[in-house]
Simulated scan of single mutants.
Amino acid sequence: MSDAAGRLAEVQGHIADAARRARRGADDICLIAVSKTHGADAIRPLIAAGQRHFGENRVQEAAAKWPALRAETPGVVLHLIGQLQSNKADDAVALFDAIHSVDRSSLVQALARACAKAGRQPQLFVQVNIGGEAQKGGCAVADLPALLGEAKEAGLAIAGLMTIPPAAQEPAPFFALLDELAGRHGLPLRSMGMSGDYETAVMLGATHVRVGTALFGARG
């Protein structure tokens, strides 16, 4: 408990410092604890320390551990931050409160059907492959307007954009571009920044940061 609380307080302090430097309020930034690959025993101490937003990469892994954890602690908010297969859209809509990886036409259509069937819509982010990396998910910058238009036509409300910058490059320009794209399209939320660069992301407009290692230590 004390270790988890200490790590959480340290990350929250860094977020607050970065927000202050950017003349923003720390309360405007949502800290998502990336719990992928970590079991319930590693997650519970962070919940006990007050953390409520958690991120998972895979629908199947989240479905195996989160229903029981949520029954223990009402108020947990679950974010899907990994790639989503269209055939898992129903499961994702049922389980997650936010999906950060909308990135292609087929997924937009699958999510629209799933949301209509479930009578609910998670908060949705379009993932943008700003670095143009072939191995990474996300729509190309040039394809963003069309994808946003298709989502609107399908009845989906897109709340923001998400990106993961190239690992070997300075992240600031990529964060700045995502912030500019979100502003251009009138989207209020920006999901960007991880354990190694979340302070930079906060300085450049992040509303959601996805932090795993700094909160949990090395992945299980």
Score class of each variant (00 low, 15 high):
S2Q: 13
D3E: 15
D3R: 14
D3S: 11
A5P: 00
R7F: 10
A9S: 05
E10L: 15
Q12K: 15
G13A: 09
G13V: 09
D17M: 09
A19N: 05
A19Q: 02
R23V: 07
A26L: 02
I29V: 15
L31E: 15
I32G: 08
I32D: 08
I32K: 07
S35Y: 13
K36G: 06
H38I: 11
H38M: 10
G39T: 11
A40L: 08
A40K: 10
D41T: 07
A42I: 04
R44Q: 10
P45I: 10
L46K: 07
I47C: 06
A48W: 09
A49H: 01
R52T: 10
R58Q: 09
Q60F: 14
E61S: 05
E61P: 02
K65D: 03
W66C: 02
R70T: 04
P74Y: 00
G75W: 00
L78D: 11
L78M: 13
H79L: 14
L80M: 13
L80A: 07
N87I: 12
K88D: 04
A89V: 04
A92M: 00
A92Q: 00
A94N: 12
F96P: 08
D97N: 00
A98F: 01
I99G: 02
H100F: 10
D103L: 03
S105R: 11
S105T: 12
S106W: 12
L111N: 00
A114E: 03
C115S: 06
A118W: 01
G119L: 02
R120K: 15
R120Y: 14
Q121Y: 01
N129T: 12
I130Y: 06
E133Y: 05
E133D: 06
E133R: 03
Q135K: 14
K136T: 11
G137A: 15
G137V: 05
G138I: 03
G138D: 02
C139L: 13
A140G: 04
D143N: 12
D143H: 08
P145M: 03
P145K: 06
A146R: 13
K152L: 11
G155Y: 12
G160T: 00
G160Q: 00
L161Q: 00
M162P: 01
T163R: 05
P166W: 11
A168G: 02
P173L: 03
D179I: 08
D179R: 15
D179S: 15
L181E: 01
L181Q: 02
G186M: 07
L187K: 01
M192V: 07
M194N: 08
S195F: 09
G196D: 15
D197Y: 13
D197L: 10
Y198V: 03
Y198P: 03
Y198M: 03
E199R: 04
A201F: 03
G205P: 00
A206C: 08
A206H: 09
T207W: 02
H208T: 12
H208K: 12
V209Y: 07
V209W: 00
V211S: 04
G212V: 14
G212T: 14
L215P: 13
L215Y: 08
G217S: 10
